[in-house]
């Protein structure tokens, strides 16, 4: 039975334990950020930030939603990946860092703006669902750490049932007429399911996400990249990738705090 993660926005207090716990387990460095007039930081997901809480203010409300990889069944990133670096490992959509050439197709294709290319590694990176943890009987770091229990990990079917029940309660008892479950059916079914207190668009999610295909992506790119560049790109990136791996190994030897 597939596992999934349930993020209940009605319970999230935006303590952002998930952001740090993810970095702690996955050994991701801090980003340099600025105070831009919001509690939200870093400004977006990146090669080193795989989950982040988005803050939205409305009159009398402060909405929080942890944003991370949805681990879609119909995963656009997987479909457009030219090297086969992105694959499903069970329910988990994983980018194999050794195969990734950093072409950035997945970055453009993802309807949720999840994968990001990392400048240091030259590869696309994103949430791995803590595959090493969940494959060994542990919860993903984000779900494990969540103090109010807004992020839960478990059997997907159970979580969807729990989410549906929670939405009913939110509508009937808490005055959230727009509460809804997100992810049960989208893109063939997501493995990050949400309980949303508002319509998806009010919380930064596409109401009807679409699967990108290579064709779709080629159409997107046609306006900006010539076919010739497109054809040459992977080879150039493979070469660059090799140099970057060498540089990365060198920096590891030199050490430094994360």
């Amino acid at each position: 039975m597939p596992k999934a993660r349930l993020i209940d926005t009605s319970k999230c207090t935006a303590c952002r334990g998930c952001q740090v716990a993810c970095k702690q387990w996955n050994e991701l460095p801090a980003e340099e950020t600025k105070q831009l007039g919001t509690y939200e930081n870093p400004p977006h997901l990146s090669g080193n930030t795989w989950i982040k809480v988005e803050f939205r203010e409305r009159p009398g409300e402060w909405l929080f939603r942890a944003h991370t990889c949805m681990h879609c069944v119909d995963a656009s990133c997987e479909k457009v990946c030219p090297t086969g670096a992105i694959s499903h490992q069970g329910e988990v959509v994983l980018i194999d860092q050794k195969q990734c050439i950093g072409c950035g197709y997945c970055v453009l294709a993802c309807p949720y703006n999840v994968p990001h290319r990392d400048e240091i590694t030259g590869t696309a990176r994103k949430c791995t669902f803590c595959i090493d943890r969940i494959g060994n009987g542990l919860e993903p770091a984000c779900a494990k750490t969540c103090p109010p229990g807004a992020i839960k990990f478990g059997e997907r079917a159970d979580l969807i049932a729990m989410a549906e029940q929670r939405v009913q309660t939110l509508i009937s008892d808490y005055g959230y007429p727009n509460a809804n479950v997100y992810g049960a059916d989208e893109l063939g079914g997501l493995h990050t399911i949400y309980v949303l207190t508002e319509r998806p668009s009010a919380l930064g999610l596409p109401e009807t996400p679409e699967v990108a295909t290579s064709t779709v992506l080629a159409q997107w790119l046609s306006g900006v990249v010539t076919a010739g560049v497109l054809a040459a790109l992977p080879f150039w990136l493979l070469f660059k990738r090799k140099k970057q791996i060498e540089a990365e190994q060198k920096s590891k030897v030199e050490g430094g705090v994360r």
Binding site: R16, Q19, V20, K23, Q24, P29, A30, E31, E32, T33, K34, Q35, G37, Y39, N41, P42, V257, R258
Partner: peptide, 12 residues
């Protein structure tokens, strides 16, 4: 702590 500074980088 770099991770905490990332989240709340400056006085406001």
């Amino acid at each position: 702590m770099p991770w905490n500074v990332e989240l709340m980088p400056e006085m406001f």
